[in-house]
Amino acid sequence: MTNPVAVPQTTAERPRSWYKRNEIALTPWLFLIPGVLFFLVYVIFPIFQSISISFTEWDGLGQAEPVGLENYRELFDDDAFYTSLRNNIIWLFLYLLAIPAGLFIALFLNQTVFGIRLYKSLFFFPFVISQVVVGLVFSWFYDPTFGLFNEIIGWFGLGPVNVLGDERYVTYGIIAAGIWPQTAYCMILYLTGLNAVDPEQVEAARLDGAKGWRMLWYVIIPQLKPATFIAFVVTIIGALRSFDLISIMTNGGPFGESRVLSFYMFEVALSEYGFRMGYGAAIAVILFLIMMIFITYFLWSMYREERGR
């Protein structure tokens, strides 16, 4: 196959080469090859490799020993797995609160007073801070001896609460830390969305006497649908990827009560106590299947939209 760069630009008058004749059909493939190759090797193939590893027992060094469904059988009899799964579900639902919270802040900030641009940026910027730092910041915030959190609830005669050391609160405490930047993200999506809301429709609705909640619900939110869709996608993905915060804030504790599947998988497969690659892969497969439900839904939505064009 001829390298396209080598084709002199004056070929138009000469007898057309094979490449030239098929240029339109070939070019996309030439452009796709590097990207697709990279992606296949690092993303697509590994998914299938993981699935096949999950049917083996393997310490990452020697020969993997096929064990059939043994890993899955053990998984379904493993308390830590159910704890992780339960926490994953809590994460999924509570994380979605970032969407209404983001909308609320967006509505609050969607004004044109002096300095509002700066306010918007300052409200948004927690999103660009790494989760590692957010985790550290919040673990100090929650610290039972000197944390600001206990200081504040102390003003109301409450506490002190050992948020990250108490198995009843720990997951919620971590989720709150995660929602903080996620809300900022949703806020910026909605601010952009609100900018594009059709003013004529709003005026028309106002003339019809709509205002407040009714206006928001029947006129504004339907127009924000694209923003909501993206907010939904990124929030779900974020919830299921929750690893950094847990690793930094609690390391899964106390007594493993704040684990989620992504963290448990890492613990099993790569920590001192583990290197059970097969078992870890099985956990990853379960997590993948959960994610697959959402991925399928996203793709289906996109597919419909593509068709609609």
Binding site: P46, Q49, S50, G60, F266, G280, F288, M291, F294, I295
Partner: peptide, 9 residues
Amino acid sequence: FVPFQILMV
């Protein structure tokens, strides 16, 4: 969109 863990090993 896939979870990182499925790629990890």
